[in-house]
Write a protein that binds this DNA or RNA. Structure first.
Lengths: 130, 130, 130, 130
DNA sequence: GTGGTCTAGACCACA
DNA sequence: GTGGTCTAGACCACC
């Protein structure tokens, strides 16, 4: 299997701004290990051509990911996947999920939907995935 | 006890736009039954004064809720809580939750977080709420 | 004395990019307390007109300061000085100074300049300021 | 003992551009006396091979150092460490340090950090180095 | 009016 | 070629 390691899809339907769609997908790809530390990423201009967006939008996405520690970029050289503490990132993600679930549970409560029902929804997913 | 049926809190910290903070809380109040069908809501001007925001913001919120079927505005009379098919709304909300959970599970998978762990997070919440 | 609380000077001589010159000066102003928490900052467009730069450059500066926790900005409302943990920021600044001094001392060592001489330079400053 | 007089380390982590990392280290080596006046430096190509960078980058570094008076390049012969007025260079460096310290002290003042505290930081360094 | 996003295009330093 | 900065101008959502 020889293909692009990076398949980024931008949807105009998605209300998220482009740069967020890009960072979200790249963050996941890096976290998942689809991109190994040190690997060179497409240059800003390449990526811009490929996704048919402005280089500035890609720059914005790369810049955000750099601030988050997912990649490092050096003028004249390009951008590279950063050495990442996978455990730290996983823990951070779990924390985010916990907050999201809590928010959902709270809002569900107002509609008379108990947490038990949310649990049931999660279990449905587990079964579907089997 | 005759008091405000409606306690809406707008926070500047909350990144959500004001009109969304308002609709979210009113929707929950109506769904929860805190506001009974037919009940008269404060006029746009009253509400605006009370929350110290622009009437335009309230108009936007009422308009959104009307489009969603939660209230009815009669020109010259005011706005009233709509008669609501509680079951229909609950079912709709469950569907929304299902989609959100699926989205979370998908993104979590990229970080090596299995659905079982999400289930665990939900269970933690159940215990905490007891 | 009634004047602008914010005097920002941009120099074309300065090799730092404009947005950094702006953030540096605003950060100092906020840290110093010249701007109180909650105070409204000039809008992006106002500031841009005043400094005769593009609104995007100001946006960049405000965005950086927001990520650093110095201000919060809400669409449609404007930008406001954040409630700040002054102690935390002071400690961070001391850490940065420590690193800078260490770097200077290291580079000075190569020229045969001992730390004692750096100390003497600092003392000169103390006397001058009296 | 006949070994490399010049150990230059280029780091990808270091945000400084490569040419600066090189000039900084060579300048220090010359100022320190590790390279004696008249000594022949590796040719641009040699150096480039050794550091695994482009000859253009080395050319830029050598050129910068020549402009600063640290080395002399004779076409066809190579590059040589310049005869240096060590005192003059030391004095210049002290001046630079004085300016940097003044800048740091000024910025620190905005955070309520007195010069006395900077002095303390310098003293900590002195102790650590003993 | 406010901020948020995106584009097209320019100029610069770095390799 | 690379990334970094800045401009001018457009369109959108929010208030």
């Amino acid at each position: 299997m020889r293909g692009k390691a990076l398949h980024i899809a931008i949807s105009k339907e998605n209300p998220d701004p482009m740069h967020k769609q890009i960072t979200d997908q790249m963050r996941d790809a890096i976290a998942k290990g689809a991109l190994s530390p040190g690997a060179r990423l497409p240059s800003i201009r390449e990526m811009a051509r490929e996704l048919a967006v402005s280089p500035i939008t890609i720059k914005r996405a790369y810049g955000d990911l750099e601030r988050e520690g997912y990649l490092i970029t050096r003028a004249g050289l390009g951008s590279f996947v950063a050495g990442i503490d996978r455990e730290r990132i996983r823990a951070k993600k779990v924390g985010e999920i916990r907050e999201e679930i809590a928010r959902i549970a709270k809002s569900a409560g107002a509609f008379g939907i108990p947490i038990a029902e949310i649990r049931r929804i999660v279990d449905e997913l587990r079964i579907k995935r089997r």
